[in-house]
Nucleic acid binder design. Structure first.
Length: 481
RNA sequence: GGCGCAUUGGUGUAAUUGGUUAACACGCCGCCCUCUCAAGGCGGAAAGUACGGGUUCGAUCCCCGUAUGCGCUACCA
């Protein structure tokens, strides 16, 4: 039973923020795991000492949690394959690397980075392809021993078999084959003693019993290196699925240069996590079979997701559609939760939101106009005016004889109301219309202006509801002479 | 340059094992609703499936070639 449990991993390197592409990779991994009742493992690939960033891991875990992409094993969650930080597994890599050295699948190399650069420069000048010329493969045993004992800095490289063809199957792309003559003798162990991605990744995936590797397409061409490693160790190769890239509008790989790529930034702008998840899931995947719905909860996605329906070509990140989808979520969200989420944005816009009930009413009334929570300020402002300031045109409108009639009649009727609800104010306006014979713009505009000193906004009945009876009465009294 | 992957309206996608007026959504345009702004409803423009060859009675779907795009080509992941 243990043997056929699906085990999947998300293995980011902590960069300080979660790239949208990584979010989607994490999501696909998560969905695949849950769909198959498997285990989701989080592993931190922090083998690049030069890119260490303080707090990056905490941030990453935080984000995964807020999106509900919970993992079964990993930092904080424990698990029998700990530690889950590659930087804490150095001895493991070293041990397996020694094995490779002993079996002749790997070898020591002593070139400095400068020498390698020089080598590449020459190759480039000669029009040859740039790759390690494998010179250290010819070092005699005694030469190697001498350099080692005298402490010359060294790396360990993978001995790629010459002239073989590596074939493999990718769940998303089908069969792929690559000539080994084109594959570089990859560095496995760096001179600082840290493993490269390739070594650490293969060892950990095997040790952690990963059954399916789901990662970005940019890894596709390095699969042969990994397969050679699995073979050298005599390990079974996990199944693989390389998901398409997320692209900029100009079809290049989604990058920082052309907008926000950090998931955090989207949260800050008031995109809801449910909308982000929903949208990212549909970027490169769809349920197929004529399904035309597009709004899916995480639960629904878990039920529907399968790797076979993942697209094989890159998907442009269409922010217009995200905006629409986010708007859909805002319109249909539980109002109390929406209010909670909105409070920080209202605060940021400088409103006094101590009255939660009012904030809730305001949200109820303006949510249809919203695509993002950070747009809240401009739609909410009219409900939080301390005192009204009228434009000359608005003043004229209020002074009109008919306007005064409308306001007076409305005031009398409003005072009789116990409280204003979403439904009971509109009928009152209609009564005013009947009694005064005034209708259309001449009926509504004076009221709107008297209420909020604005020409636009939600329908009047709702404006009154959001304002509350006390304010409505007060404003009407102000408007009447 | 080499290698790999990809290619359905502007964008995301759909199209039972080859047979559809090539569907849905976003965006865009128009109309309706309406005090305004949104939302909502209705409708429209927009791809003959990158191009060229095959295979087939028939190809978006299978095969080959070309073009284009992207990715990789580090002691980064």
């Amino acid at each position: 039973m243990e043997n056929n449990t699906v085990r999947v991993r998300f293995a980011p390197s902590p960069t300080g923020y979660l790239h949208l592409g990584s979010l989607r990779t994490a999501l696909f991994n998560y969905l695949f795991t849950r769909h198959n009742n498997g285990k989701f493992i989080l592993r931190i690939e922090d083998t690049d000492q030069s890119r260490k960033i303080e707090g990056a891991v905490e941030n990453l875990i935080n984000i995964l949690n807020t999106f509900g992409l919970t993992y079964d094993e990993g930092p904080g969650a424990g698990g029998e394959h700990a530690p889950y930080f590659q930087s804490e597994r150095l001895e493991i890599y070293r041990k397996y690397c020694d094995e490779l050295l002993a079996s002749g699948h790997a070898y020591y190399a002593f070139e400095t980075e400068e020498e390698l650069e020089e080598m590449r420069r020459i190759q480039q000048m000669q029009g040859k392809q740039t790759m390690y010329d494998r010179r250290a493969r010819n070092l005699s045993e005694s030469e190697v021993k001498a350099k080692l004992t005298s402490g010359v800095p060294h790396v360990v490289r993978l001995k790629i078999p010459l002239d073989e063809e590596i074939k493999f199957h990718d769940i998303i792309r089908g069969n792929v084959k690559i000539e080994t003559s084109l594959v570089d003798d990859q560095v496995l162990l760096k001179s600082d003693g840290y493993p490269t991605y390739h070594l650490a990744n293969v060892i950990d995936d095997h040790l952690m019993k990963i059954t399916h590797i789901i990662r970005g397409e940019e890894w596709l061409t390095s699969v042969p290196k990994h397969i050679i490693l699995y073979n050298a160790f005599g390990w079974e190769v996990p199944q693989m699925a390389h998901v398409p890239l997320i692209l900029n509008p100009d079809k290049t790989k989604l990058s920082k240069r052309q907008g926000d790529v950090a998931t955090e930034d989207y949260l800050e702008k008031g995109y809801l996590k449910e909308a982000l998840i929903n949208f990212m899931a549909l970027l490169g995947w769809n349920p197929g079979e004529g399904e035309t719905r597009e709004i899916f909860s995480l639960d629904e996605l878990e039920k529907l997701f399968n790797l076979e329906k993942v697209q094989s070509s890159g998907a442009v990140f269409n922010i217009e559609k995200l905006n629409w989808m986010n708007g859909e979520y805002i319109k249909n969200y539980n109002l109390d939760r929406l209010t909670e989420l909105s409070i920080p944005f209202m605060q940021a816009a400088g409103f006094d939101i101590r009255d939660r009930e009012k904030a809730k009413r305001v949200l109820h009334v303006i949510r249809t106009a919203l695509n993002r929570l950070d747009e809240i300020g401009k739609h909410t402002a009219q409900f939080y005016k301390e005192k009204l300031e009228f434009t000359p045109e608005q003043k004229n409108m209020l002074e009109e004889e008919s306007s005064q009639k409308v306001l007076r009649t409305l005031l009398a009727k409003t005072e009789k109301l116990e409280m204003i609800t979403t439904a009971n104010f509109k009928p009152i306006i209609q009564e005013v219309q009947k009694e005064t014979g005034i209708k259309g713009k001449n009926l509504f505009m004076p009221i709107r202006i008297a209420f909020v000193a604005e020409d636009h906004g939600p329908e009047l009945g709702w404006v009154a509801y959001a304002l509350g009876k006390a304010t409505v009465i007060e404003r009407l009294k102000c408007g009447v002479h």
